[in-house]
Simulated assay, not measured.
Amino acid sequence: MIDVQRLRVLRAVADHGSFNRAAAALRLTPSAVSQQVAALERSLGAPVVARSTRGVTLTQAGLIMVGAAESVAAELAHARRQVDRLGTGRGRLTVATFTSGGRLLLPGALARFTAAHPGTVVHVRECEPETALPLVRRGDADLALAYHFDGPLPGRPGSPDAGLAWTPLLADPLHVVLPRAHPLAGREALDIAELAAEPWVLGCTKTESYLRRHAERVGFTPEVRGTTTDYFFARSLVAAGLGVSLIPSIALTPEEPAVRVVPLVPPAPARHLGVARIGRRADADTETLVGALREEAARVSGSGCAGGTPPTP
């Protein structure tokens, strides 16, 4: 029998990267953390961490057990909410969402959801996918409205997100945003290689990483003159002439009259928006909200609010 407390300790070690920091988070001594991990390894007959002077890293067995620890925590949190509902008659649903996706999709979806489940209290937590998905895996959120670029969903390095079900909602193409007077502003589409000499202003660190990867493929290193965590701020800096930007479709409203939006030539890079939740569970509240988000994504895609934004006239 695997001890749940030992799994909890291992998860803390994985999150914090050392016994000392995990001990501080759990309010235990480092020796107690070490003993719990050693006991787990004896019960499994396999090492779960590799120790070094730089800290600890998970072995393959450790990655498997951390995934199991997160699944157990999520199931226990779900069970606790179900028991609370028996006592109060009211459900509770926690949604984690990134800013631009939540602004676009959540209001309409929540209106549909509330009409169908008026007795359920909804809590919304704003955070990026790298924070939101662990919240779902741990049971601290019931679902996450998230996104990813090329490749898999963001998660713990080396660990598959087998416990998460991903429901695609829409594609969110990236567009070039230039000052209205820019010589390339009249183009119908641009290749990213044509922007090699341009300074850049970026509104998201992940977009910057994506730009650098694509720029490397075509042979240039972007000169980044501005970085923000806000696409609207990035557009205002473009309008002021600081540089050009790469911005997802859903962050292009409301319009900024001093800039010009130009699509990239196909295949255009895009974010992929979707909903992540624990795959083995299908309670009525969660499934209703996922359905409402799918309906809202279909509505905004059909109205031209996402999946492609025409150039600013």
Rank of each mutant, 00 (worst) to 15 (best):
residue 5 Q to E: 15
residue 6 R to H: 14
residue 8 R to C: 03
residue 9 V to D: 04
residue 9 V to K: 07
residue 11 R to K: 03
residue 13 V to C: 10
residue 15 D to C: 05
residue 15 D to W: 04
residue 16 H to P: 07
residue 22 A to S: 11
residue 22 A to N: 09
residue 22 A to P: 07
residue 23 A to N: 11
residue 25 A to I: 10
residue 28 L to C: 14
residue 30 P to R: 09
residue 34 S to D: 06
residue 35 Q to Y: 08
residue 36 Q to D: 15
residue 38 A to S: 13
residue 41 E to Q: 13
residue 44 L to F: 06
residue 45 G to T: 08
residue 50 A to Q: 09
residue 51 R to H: 05
residue 52 S to R: 01
residue 53 T to F: 03
residue 55 G to K: 03
residue 55 G to Y: 00
residue 65 M to R: 07
residue 66 V to Y: 01
residue 69 A to D: 04
residue 72 V to S: 07
residue 74 A to H: 13
residue 75 E to M: 13
residue 78 H to I: 08
residue 79 A to S: 15
residue 82 Q to I: 12
residue 83 V to P: 11
residue 85 R to E: 15
residue 86 L to A: 09
residue 89 G to N: 15
residue 92 R to I: 13
residue 94 T to C: 13
residue 96 A to S: 12
residue 98 F to C: 08
residue 99 T to E: 11
residue 99 T to G: 13
residue 106 L to N: 06
residue 107 P to A: 01
residue 107 P to W: 00
residue 109 A to R: 01
residue 111 A to D: 07
residue 115 A to P: 03
residue 117 H to C: 15
residue 119 G to D: 15
residue 122 V to R: 10
residue 126 E to A: 11
residue 127 C to K: 01
residue 128 E to F: 04
residue 129 P to D: 12
residue 130 E to C: 02
residue 132 A to Y: 02
residue 132 A to M: 03
residue 135 L to E: 14
residue 136 V to H: 08
residue 136 V to G: 09
residue 136 V to D: 08
residue 141 A to T: 04
residue 143 L to C: 12
residue 146 A to C: 11
residue 150 D to C: 12
residue 152 P to S: 07
residue 152 P to C: 08
residue 159 S to A: 15
residue 159 S to L: 14
residue 160 P to H: 03
residue 160 P to R: 02
residue 162 A to M: 09
residue 163 G to K: 06
residue 170 L to W: 00
residue 171 A to D: 06
residue 176 V to H: 04
residue 177 V to R: 02
residue 177 V to I: 08
residue 179 P to F: 02
residue 180 R to A: 15
residue 181 A to S: 13
residue 183 P to R: 13
residue 184 L to K: 12
residue 187 R to N: 07
residue 190 L to K: 04
residue 191 D to A: 15
residue 194 E to F: 05
residue 197 A to N: 03
residue 198 E to M: 07
residue 198 E to Q: 10
residue 198 E to F: 03
residue 200 W to D: 03
residue 200 W to G: 01
residue 206 K to Y: 02
residue 208 E to N: 04
residue 212 R to I: 09
residue 212 R to P: 02
residue 213 R to V: 12
residue 222 P to G: 12
residue 222 P to E: 10
residue 226 G to C: 03
residue 227 T to F: 01
residue 228 T to K: 07
residue 233 F to K: 12
residue 233 F to G: 10
residue 234 A to L: 07
residue 235 R to H: 09
residue 236 S to I: 02
residue 238 V to Y: 01
residue 240 A to N: 03
residue 243 G to F: 01
residue 246 L to E: 02
residue 247 I to N: 08
residue 247 I to D: 14
residue 248 P to F: 04
residue 249 S to V: 00
residue 251 A to D: 13
residue 252 L to W: 05
residue 252 L to F: 09
residue 257 P to D: 14
residue 258 A to I: 09
residue 259 V to R: 05
residue 265 V to P: 01
residue 266 P to K: 06
residue 269 P to V: 12
residue 269 P to G: 06
residue 270 A to G: 01
residue 270 A to Q: 11
residue 275 V to T: 03
residue 279 G to R: 13
residue 280 R to W: 10
residue 280 R to M: 02
residue 283 D to P: 15
residue 290 V to D: 00
residue 292 A to V: 06
residue 294 R to K: 07
residue 295 E to T: 14
residue 295 E to K: 11
residue 298 A to K: 00
residue 302 G to D: 01
residue 307 G to N: 00
residue 307 G to E: 00
residue 308 G to W: 00
residue 313 P to K: 08
